[in-house]
Computed example of a mutant assay.
Amino acid sequence: MTAEELHALISAGLPCDHLEVAGDGRHWDALIVSSAFEGKRLIQRHQRVYATLGERMHTDEVHALSMKTFTPAEWANAQNH
């Protein structure tokens, strides 16, 4: 799995206003900004991303994924501070 492949998988399954992915092929960090996170708690946001990745989360393709998830408004607010 490459960063580009993981980026494509997330963006194909989730409408993203902003998406950054970095990692070493097994351990990944993702910053995801999506309107799909509106009204969702942190655990629900992460579950949505996990659902998008499906079985890849249960194999060595994505061993670990650390996420920062924002709604567009939260992201805009974070950028101004």
Rank of each mutant, 00 (worst) to 15 (best):
L6W: 09
L6C: 03
H7T: 10
L9Y: 05
L9T: 03
L9V: 02
I10S: 12
I10K: 00
I10H: 01
S11D: 14
S11Q: 14
P15C: 08
C16F: 06
D17H: 15
H18Q: 09
H18K: 10
L19M: 11
L19W: 12
L19A: 12
E20S: 15
V21I: 11
V21Y: 02
A22I: 08
A22V: 13
A22M: 10
A22P: 05
A22K: 15
G23M: 01
G23W: 02
D24E: 06
G25A: 02
G25E: 06
R26K: 13
H27T: 09
H27I: 03
H27S: 11
H27R: 12
H27G: 03
W28P: 12
D29P: 00
D29H: 14
L31V: 12
I32L: 09
I32E: 02
I32G: 00
I32D: 03
I32H: 04
V33G: 09
V33T: 11
S35H: 11
A36S: 14
A36R: 11
A36L: 07
F37E: 00
F37M: 08
F37L: 04
E38L: 08
G39V: 06
K40N: 06
K40L: 14
K40C: 10
R41I: 15
R41F: 08
R41D: 11
R41G: 10
I43C: 10
Q44R: 07
Q44T: 04
R45Q: 13
R45G: 02
Q47C: 07
R48Y: 12
R48C: 11
V49D: 00
V49T: 05
V49W: 01
Y50M: 04
Y50A: 01
A51L: 05
A51P: 01
T52E: 02
T52K: 09
G54F: 03
G54M: 05
E55R: 08
E55Q: 11
M57A: 03
H58E: 14
H58D: 13
T59C: 05
E61W: 04
E61S: 10
H63K: 08
A64F: 11
A64G: 07
L65Y: 05
L65T: 04
L65A: 04
S66W: 02
M67Y: 03
K68W: 04
K68T: 09
K68D: 05
T69I: 10
T69N: 07
F70T: 01
T71N: 01
T71W: 04
E74N: 05
A76V: 03
A76L: 12
N77W: 06
A78S: 09
